[in-house]
């Protein structure tokens, strides 16, 4: 039965018309977009994780704070969400950091140490760079003994906005491309069904099952998906070669948990194409070829 469907589907594929070509083209565009986006997503996650790893929130404490009180505040901070680590910076350590940064010993320069003690807080990688960081810094600023909280809020907000707006735009583009490709596949399979009406009649009146009449058209959708998936994989490989992007990004290295990460290799893309084509075609065939 499967061989029959594949053979007859291939015969239909051989009679590819204009709508069939449009279906192939749109499926290829959609699959290329999905493939490139998934690669891009890993790259952006990698870049974001690297970027966020360099930023920290610094909470400056009032002069009355000794190490015991600072430890209490540190515990309170640790109880907040998305906190990875809290380090206590003494006045002396702050002076050393100052010297490291600016090459001057501030104690020697002023005869006293004006730098406050502080707590340096690093956030977990999955924390939203805008909302989580802002919320956390506000919560820390409201804690007694904290006089000021600084972090690269504006930059992180820009990163976050870019991330979210790009994500939404890409999702919309993929959604539209998906609808267009499904539409063309449906139209193409419909026209194949119309042109093969005699075939359907002969099969059903010769005692063929419903699946025998529909199967070749489902297979046709599968062929569309297969060819489009292969073409999209080639497109991805070419784009990767041209752009020189790090196609070999490891999801784990990009900070993605195992559940979140999907390894979009070429085989997955081709399989996705085949499934997309088969489902579109199957839906059309079940609507167009009524059991009679």
């Amino acid at each position: 039965m499967i061989i029959f469907s594949l053979r007859e589907g291939w015969r239909n594929f051989g009679n590819l018309g204009v709508v069939g070509l449009l279906s192939l083209a749109s499926l290829t565009v959609t699959l290329s977009l999905i493939g490139l986006t998934s690669r891009g997503y890993l790259l952006i996650e990698d870049w974001k994780a690297g970027l966020l790893g360099r930023f920290e929130i610094e909470a400056f404490l009032s002069d009355e704070m000794d190490s015991t009180k600072a430890l209490d505040i540190s515990k309170n901070i640790r109880s907040l969400k998305n906190i990875e680590d809290v380090r206590y910076i003494t006045k002396q350590a702050a002076a050393e950091r100052f010297e490291d940064l600016f090459g001057e010993d501030i104690v020697e320069l002023l005869d006293y140490n004006p730098l406050p003690t502080s707590l340096v807080i690093s956030m977990t990688r999955d924390a939203d760079p805008f909302r989580s960081w802002e919320k956390t810094s506000q919560a820390i600023a409201e804690m007694p003994g904290v006089v000021d909280v600084v972090y690269a809020g504006e930059l992180l907000a820009k990163v976050s906005r870019f991330y979210h707006s790009t994500g939404s735009s890409v999702a919309i583009v993929i959604g539209v491309a998906l609808i267009v490709s499904v539409l063309f596949t449906v139209l193409s399979v419909q026209s194949a069904i119309l042109s093969r009406d005699e075939f359907i009649q002969i099969v059903t009146l010769s005692g063929g099952t419903s699946w025998m009449a529909r199967g070749p058209f489902v297979a046709l959708g599968g062929y569309y998906g297969l060819v489009s998936g292969i073409t999209a994989s080639i497109v991805m490989a070419i784009v990767g070669w041209f752009v020189g992007m790090g196609w070999d990004v490891d999801p784990a290295e990009a900070g993605l948990s195992l559940n979140m990460s999907i390894r979009w290799d070429y085989a997955t893309l081709i399989a996705a194409g085949v499934l997309l084509g088969m489902f579109s075609a199957g839906w059309t065939a079940s609507r167009r070829i009524k059991r009679k």
Partner: peptide
């Protein structure tokens, strides 16, 4: 339908396949 064979006035043959393929198409239904 497998218990019935039908001969049509206008033959209803598929022109894109040979005599053997036309007959084989019905044969695979049983």
């Amino acid at each position: 339908r497998r218990r019935i064979g039908i001969i049509y006035q206008n033959f209803r043959l598929l022109n894109d396949r040979s005599a053997l393929e036309n007959v084989r198409l019905a044969a695979v239904c049983e």
